[in-house]
Simulated scan of single mutants.
Amino acid sequence: MLLFLKSSSRTVHHYPDQESGIEINNFSTDDIDHQRCCTSLTVWSKSLVFGCNGFTVIGSDGSLAYRVDNYSDNPNQIVLMDGSGNPIFTICRRKKLRLIDDNWLVYNGEVGKYCDKSSRKPIFCVKKNANILKTKKLSAIAYVYNDGISTASSKRCAYMIEGSYKHRSCQILDETGQVVAEIKRKQASTGGVSFGLEVFVLVVNAVFDPGFAMAFVLLLDQMFH
């Protein structure tokens, strides 16, 4: 049980502000599990606040790294906070006339109750890959586009997510095809006992922002919950 958590004494999240833009870093690694180049987070799909839906994310040192406490009755808007409760990202679902055209917008910080009325510009737009044919071939399950744009003319995406969130087995790839983060099932250190789907591991490469990787987890949970 996660009853006693120590707050992180340092800022876990580092991210440029809205005006400075976003820099996508490329890297080369043979093993994303290598401890010297990665951050490993334990994600628990429960809020520590009674009566709230959300997530609790624990760092490798046992500190509370990130949290989501959804008090509102709006499931289409989620605020990701650091361990101290400071907002990092707001994720909003934007519905269109057709279900397959649904996409999600990611904003820096907190944008208020109504994302569609905000004067802020989203930093990313995420689209679910509508696999109508239900093919068994491994393909992308979601695409991430820069600057909140996902049109027919913007064929080049910044990130792509492959695998199966339902089975907690996903890889996040940058535009060069390199893995920047990975979602895995969590197992006990001895005996190989699984913790189920509510507790899993998010492994993040050193050059990628763990906070943004956690935002991807929230997006996938919205898409495939």
Rank of each mutant, 00 (worst) to 15 (best):
L5V: 09
S9P: 04
H13T: 09
P16F: 05
P16W: 01
Q18A: 15
I22D: 11
E23H: 10
D31W: 02
D31R: 07
Q35R: 09
T42I: 13
T42Y: 07
S45Q: 15
K46T: 05
C52W: 12
N53W: 09
N53V: 05
V57F: 02
V57K: 01
S60A: 15
D61G: 03
L64A: 07
L64G: 06
R67I: 01
D69F: 03
N74I: 11
P75E: 10
M81T: 07
G83W: 06
N86P: 00
I91Y: 04
C92H: 01
R93K: 15
R93H: 06
R94K: 15
L99R: 13
L99Q: 13
D102H: 13
V106N: 04
N108I: 07
N108A: 08
G109A: 04
G112L: 02
K113D: 10
K117T: 13
K117A: 12
S118T: 15
R120A: 12
R120G: 00
A130C: 11
A130N: 13
T135A: 10
T135W: 15
K137P: 00
L138D: 11
A142G: 03
Y143G: 01
Y143W: 13
Y145G: 00
D147M: 06
I149V: 14
S150E: 00
T151I: 02
R156N: 08
G163R: 04
S164L: 06
R168V: 07
S169C: 14
L173M: 13
T176N: 12
V180Y: 03
A181N: 04
A181D: 06
R185L: 12
K186E: 01
K186S: 06
A188R: 11
G192E: 05
V193A: 12
G196N: 04
V199N: 04
V204E: 01
N205E: 12
V207W: 10
F208H: 05
D209T: 08
G211Q: 06
M214H: 01
L220Y: 03
D221H: 15
D221M: 05
Q222G: 12
M223I: 10
